[in-house]
Computed example of a mutant assay.
Amino acid sequence: MSVDAMIAAAEKWIGTGEPNAIQQWYRERNGADYNGNFAWCDAAVSYWATRADERDAVLFGHDFAYTVAHAARFKAAGRWHAMTDGIKASGIRRGDVIFFDWDGSSEIARIDHVGIVTGVSADHRHVFTIEGNTADVCARRARDVHDIAGFGRPEYKRSPKTPDTGGGTGSKRPVVSLSKLVAAFEKDAPREGTPVSYKPTIYVENALVAEKLLAKQYADGHAGSATRSAYSLWQERCGFHGTEPGGDADGTPGMTTLKRLGLLHGFDVAA
């Protein structure tokens, strides 16, 4: 699903302060009412959706700077979910557009702020987000239920499927099997000179090198401790937390983070 493209568009702006190019982009499209250093959290969501080619799903074809109007549009489309039953019961998930009321209500008219969901903590106590205009920058945040008014669920496009390449002819992109990759990671293969237990591991390692999380000398096809540590950093970058064994960022690949890596670096993922 191109929810990954939406989140990738947001991640490129992490650390951006103000004034910024998102504000300028919104001003050029929507006029002088947006001169100066205006609040840009929803302008950022509008920008990311435009770059991800998801304007219909996220914006219903419009730009938004006013969070109340944006949430109301989700409601009019039947895609609004008020946060009245807690994080777990709400079913909030990666890619949802999350709206906040700092006073703790779930009323659309009182919404203050907006972001994009990147994940939910294993204990369902926090929702992980990327937000523009949070303390005047674009940043990752962990939000608890008190601040969440509700969320809109975009109907994202599905990415076109690429044929399973598994070694056959006519392949365009390599395929990494998640189950085989996890088995290779669990073996914690030794260094150079020993057989590689799963050759497509190299695609994952090369992607981690490209993300500047793994030193190039460790991209040798052996899923060793350096690779596992680098993958843990990738999981954290994707919004997951918990580096202890069994945590969401413990260095063991999962489908969500592996697909995200493949989307950015040219491989597909199979079970």
Rank of each mutant, 00 (worst) to 15 (best):
A77R: 15
L59N: 15
D63L: 08
A72H: 10
H62M: 11
F60E: 11
A77L: 01
A65I: 00
R79G: 02
H62S: 11
H70D: 04
G61I: 06
A71H: 06
G61H: 08
A77P: 04
R55L: 14
F60P: 03
V58G: 10
D63P: 13
H81Q: 13
H81W: 11
A52S: 15
D63W: 12
K75F: 03
E54V: 02
H70M: 04
F64G: 01
A71T: 01
A65R: 09
A65N: 06
H70V: 00
R55W: 12
A72S: 05
F64K: 05
F60C: 10
G61N: 12
H70C: 00
A57D: 11
F74K: 01
A76S: 08
F60M: 09
H62W: 07
H81P: 02
H62V: 03
R73T: 02
F60H: 14
G78M: 05
D53M: 05
G78D: 06
L59C: 14
F60D: 15
K75Q: 13
H81G: 02
A76E: 14
V58P: 15
F74D: 00
H81E: 08
T67K: 05
G61R: 11
A76K: 15
T67H: 06
H70E: 06
G61S: 12
H62Q: 14
F74G: 00
H62G: 05
V58I: 10
D53R: 14
T67L: 06
A69M: 01
Y66K: 03
V58T: 14
A69Q: 12
F64Y: 15
V68P: 04
H81N: 13
F60W: 12
Y66A: 02
A65M: 08
A72C: 00
R55C: 13
L59M: 11
F64M: 05
H62E: 10
K75G: 04
F60R: 07
A76Y: 09
G61M: 10
A71L: 01
A77H: 13
V68Q: 09
A52Q: 09
Y66F: 12
F64S: 02
A76V: 03
D56M: 13
V68D: 02
T67I: 06
A76L: 07
A65K: 09
G78S: 04
D56F: 14
H70A: 00
D53A: 11
G78C: 04
H62K: 14
